[in-house]
Design a protein around this nucleic acid. Structure first.
Lengths: 313, 313
DNA sequence: TTAAAACATGACAAGTAATGGCATGGTTAA
DNA sequence: TTAACCATGCCATTACTTGTCATGTTTTAA
């Protein structure tokens, strides 16, 4: 077997085992100990973070940040990685930011010149825009780690009613519209609540869980209609257009031949506060027939506004 | 020089030159032609898509999808690539989708088992949510390519007033909230308009431009306040909280000692329709002092709503 | 038609690199 | 003190790589 292949086999063996002696490698691969020592020197030169402990019970140990065997990418594959990195551009406080820039550097420097131009173009012609937050989310990495490692958190949280301590069990972390959210089980409220990671002021302590809890995917899919209520709205042509642009309504809009349409569907009661502004904005382009709660909400807000600005003419 | 190093030098030479003869390589690297033939066989075995043309004027040609020299990633760097790919999960019709899955496969299969677990966890504990559109954007790749390659487009576009043909010069493509947008110069309207890529029904034809136009970055930064108008709003404590969550206001909110606050800033007149629903929602938590246009808008909408629902009690 | 310019492949000797065995020396823990 | 580790040097042997020469095929220009 060629030297290169053998080196990579040993690299993978070392990565998996983390701690081993030269004799073990020699036995495993049927090569002499002398050669093992030479090989380990080579791996170390390649950048594998490995060190030796002298003396009895000594041996080699591979540190974290282990090296993967060399990977051959095509130019297009490399470009696709730059494309994916581009999608992270409008975020602050990303985990893995140092790794991302080192990958970018490694890839970019091994691209031929014409491919570099292509990557530069992608960078200037594609964006994944989100409101570029000036809000800092310094604890994102820690919260993410706690989620992944299934740890509960005691946190200081800035909520509507001021700052307070919370004891939560994280489900996962997700980004939406440039902000990071943490759905988590709140032990004192005894239900799953959504937290904003930037509003977590500090992590006081953590504790491990033994059992498994739900993960993000399960939470997303369980988070469907729970307190269904009938929504029935007539829409003008413009109303149809607008509603189709709203994610949660997109699939619910029915269009008639003349271009007008309607929504007739079950939604969750909890959504009412979020859709009220939409129907306010639509005005005459959407006539709400049901639910009463939504109509009342619209009237109440309208009256409040009128009262407040009655002096301005 | 070692064989491996020489092979990679030749790989890069071949990638850059695309077409060459064995003699050229032999001269360039001062090795025999026989060895060049052997090396090219090796490169071909490694996966370089190269083929030979026989006879006079023949030679070797490297096809597109050229191979990059092998790259050594650390485990964490590989994980960061998976993290970036995760951010693309909620999009349909992505360019580079085949490349992304082949990169995922190459990386995943060379990870040690414990690192595979880590990647799986990232996949189930992190999401970059956006409204998972059922809207198809089949022309995304084509539009993107036209932007990058500086080509004008004749398109069929579905706009407010129905379907019509347009002649545009693309600036770039960006994603926001799960939808893809194309700012482009409209030749008949003689100004830059924003298009939704999913509303482009077909591309009729394209034509090349010789000169340079603005790119996305320039467009984003030029797209600031143009028709400034004074916005002056008093905010309750809750109003401050809410406004700080709105991207465009985030930096404008001033907070007083008692927790209440205000906004006093220039905004673009064109933003008024977009911020009206926000202040409607805020109701008593935000008292608009200026501009008059905003106050009028609020009152008008409120009256419209009240009129429409006056029968519902 | 022919000669020149290219790739394809095989054989072999000469040169170069990798390997294993041995020796020596250092470090650490039982 | 000794056993179990790593570190390094030397050297003969073995394995691989290279260059040269030879033979063939394909294609194109003269």
């Amino acid at each position: 077997m060629s030297k290169a292949k053998r080196l990579l086999d040993i690299l993978m063996f070392a990565n998996a085992k983390r701690k081993f002696t030269a004799q073990e490698i020699a036995d495993e691969f049927k090569i002499s100990i002398r050669t093992v020592h030479r090989y380990i020197l080579d791996l170390s030169d390649m950048g594998l973070p490995i060190y030796a402990e002298q003396g009895r019970n000594g041996g080699y140990t591979v540190l974290s940040n282990r090296l993967l065997p060399p990977i051959l990418f095509t130019e297009e594959e490399a470009v696709s990685i730059f494309f994916a990195f581009q999608s992270l551009n409008y975020y602050r406080n990303l985990p893995f930011d140092t790794e991302i820039s080192s990958v970018e550097h490694k890839l970019y420097s091994s691209l031929p010149n014409d491919a570099k131009v292509k990557v530069d173009k992608i960078r200037s012609y594609i964006a994944f825009w989100n409101p570029k937050r000036t809000i800092d989310t310094p604890l994102l990495k820690d919260v993410l780690e706690a989620s992944i490692e299934n740890r509960n958190l005691h946190i200081q949280y800035e909520s509507k009613s001021g700052m307070k301590a919370k004891h939560i069990r994280p489900i996962g972390v997700y980004a939406h519209d440039g902000l990071w959210y943490l759905p988590a089980y709140d032990f004192s409220k005894q239900k799953i609540l959504l937290h904003r990671v930037d509003r977590i002021l500090s992590i006081l302590s953590t504790e491990n869980n033994e059992d498994e809890f739900m993960n993000l995917e399960e939470w997303f899919s369980s988070n469907e209609v729970k307190r269904p209520i009938q929504l029935h709205v007539l829409l003008s042509i413009e109303g149809v257009r607008q509603c189709k642009s709203v994610p949660s309504f997109e699939g619910l809009v029915e269009t008639k031949e003349d271009g007008t349409g309607y929504i007739d569907s079950d939604i969750d009661q909890g959504e009412i506060p979020f859709i009220t502004p939409l129907f306010f904005r639509l005005g005459k382009d959407a006539r709400v027939l049901e639910p009463k709660e939504l109509i009342d909400g619209l009237r109440l807000k309208a009256e409040e506004i009128l009262t407040m600005y009655q002096g301005n003419n």
